[in-house]
Design a protein around this nucleic acid. Structure first.
Lengths: 208, 208
DNA sequence: TAGATTGTTAATCGATTAACAATC
DNA sequence: TAGATTGTTAATCGATTAACAATC
């Protein structure tokens, strides 16, 4: 099915569409149009239909999309219909914030193991999950069958952590460290670079 | 100068290039080639040169770029040569993490005012900056001449906060709330959507 | 001079936008 | 049937990649 290449931007939008559908009160209306979705998430209706068309025909012409069934399709495409174990590495302020982030919980994401190198933090618990020494990362992550590793460590050690995660057989890495990670191409990698986002904004200042 | 449209992706890369230049030890070599930069940040050398070419000629053919001078040019383009006041709204776990984030400090970003609605938090201090009631947002942000507002509140109130920030004359908004903000087009807006990044990764699972 | 590396133009590629036939 | 809205093809737009002349 994934033989035709799906644009990254399309995948991101699928996730956004799905989150919007989550919020619709289906008692008011059980269907939704591409125009409606487009307006609500800030894209244009052509794009909504095009994005969906990569994966099949989910709507009814003249009527629209059934909210519940479309969302089920989207969740399935995003593989959110099955639980997935996630390892969080780096339990500093940012790691802490991620571990407790509502936006993850709402979409069904729960961290199944958490690592840090600070002896002060090791042994403490978050939502019933114990913080473990990063020395045991490879062992535990493999045991846990974590499919995703999240890196919220300092940039210096991020590459090393990434290597360990790959050894422990994660399939994907979400990296918050501001550094270019070199990893095997079969691992999917996504970088979230916070400073860069701020600098995008300062660039746009009209320097009077 | 900004009459020709600069791709967003280019602006993001300028920021990445600059951060890389920060890290180069110029005692070892005072110049750097587009190949070198490209390798280090994970893009291709054509792209580095093309990105820079939007703004001028910064290199010497046959030699490369002077590290220090190129970085100064980039910092100027990104308007990082002048301090800019930033308001942070929402001092939950995520806001807290952002306020203390090293990656911001390293690039010269400091938050000059912080807001929350929780009486428990109001009056506490972070790096010498007091958390203020969100009721006083418009007044204080305008007084402070904040050019950027960062929203790390729950999604429900994000639009309302955005409106207040715009009233208080910010020029840009960095939004962490998972919701589409409707704001005047002259305000530059950047969304950082954490859950969507995770779902990008789950999409790529090879569903065996 | 010969080798290296930039700056810039051209070619390719991919994503978005638009238009419209299909059909409920 | 008429109106609405999808699914899909075509047109446009923009960004990336490649090639190469310029020049240090």
């Amino acid at each position: 099915m994934k033989s035709i290449k799906i644009p990254e931007a399309t995948i991101i939008r699928l996730s956004v569409y799905s989150r919007y559908l989550d919020k619709i009160d289906i008692r008011k209306s059980s269907t939704v149009s591409s125009d409606d979705i487009a307006q609500s998430v800030g894209v244009n209706p052509f794009q909504v239909r095009k994005d969906l068309a990569y994966f099949g025909e989910f709507g009814i012409r003249g009527v629209g999309y059934n909210v519940k069934s479309l969302n089920q399709h989207l969740l399935k495409l995003l593989n959110l219909n099955v639980k997935c174990n996630i390892a969080l590495v780096g339990f500093g302020k940012l790691g802490h914030a991620l571990a407790l982030y509502q936006g993850f919980k709402e979409r069904g994401f729960v961290f199944t193991c958490i690592f840090d190198s600070d002896p002060q933090k090791i042994g403490t618990k978050v939502n019933g999950v114990e913080v473990i020494s990063v020395d045991r990362l490879e062992e535990i992550v493999e045991q846990n069958h974590s499919r995703i590793g999240i890196i919220s460590t300092p940039a210096k050690v991020a590459q090393e952590i990434a290597n360990s995660l790959v050894k422990a057989r994660v399939q994907s890495i979400l990296n918050f460290a501001p550094v270019n990670l070199n990893i095997a191409p079969e691992i999917s990698l996504r970088n979230v670079d916070l400073a860069v986002n701020l600098e995008f904004l300062t660039f746009n200042f009209d320097d009077e």
